[in-house]
């Protein structure tokens, strides 16, 4: 594996690793690791470092909604213009152009049911280019960003194996 990809893999799994720790793990000088990470950040390959939160374990227990949006494409703009308008709403976590029976997939996270309903009916549906919407709520998260949420917390192995 290329060192650059190896660093990305390590950080994708644990963004809290320091450059010094990574340097030891992959057997490279710490300066080189720092420079690589800086260049990955500058090139917008690393876009940020965030905690992976299982909100279901908090009291708030908000919902995640996937909103399918069908859009009439605009002359010369395609879908980019409308997508940009939708992305500007701070509630929107992800927004993708899709192939298939609808056009944009808009993902809202950490909102209440009512927030989502209001958002769809007051912000998305009224946009003139929007033809229709279909909203799906996630009932339970089993795996997110490569991390399984239902796995055993405890080590299933024996306490000591010689």
């Amino acid at each position: 594996m290329e060192k650059r990809e190896e660093i990305l893999n390590l950080l994708e799994r644990n963004a809290k690793l320091t450059a010094a720790e990574i340097a030891v793990m992959i057997d490279r000088p710490v300066e080189e690791v720092e420079a690589t990470i800086a260049s990955l950040e500058n090139a917008n390959i690393i876009l940020g470092y965030r905690a992976l939160v299982n909100w279901e374990k908090t009291v708030a227990a908000p919902v995640t909604a996937l909103i399918e949006v069908r859009v009439a494409p605009q002359r010369d703009q395609g879908f980019d213009n409308i997508a940009q308008r939708i992305c500007r709403f701070p509630q929107v976590k992800d927004c993708y152009l899709m192939s298939g029976s609808f056009d944009l997939m808009v993902i809202i996270e950490d909102a209440s049911l009512k927030d989502v309903a209001m958002f769809v009916s007051e912000k998305i549906a009224p946009l003139e280019a929007v033809i229709s919407t279909g909203t799906h709520f996630i009932l339970k998260k089993y795996k997110m960003n490569g991390t399984e949420f239902f796995g055993q917390d405890d080590d299933p192995r024996e306490a000591v194996i010689l």
């Binding site: 405890d154 080590d155 192995r157 306490a159 000591v160 194996i161 010689l162």
Partner: peptide
Amino acid sequence: FDLANEMRGQVISLSIGEPD
């Protein structure tokens, strides 16, 4: 051995000779 078994589940185990 006895102590490790008693404390199983509350400790980080780097005492295991098999792949994780």
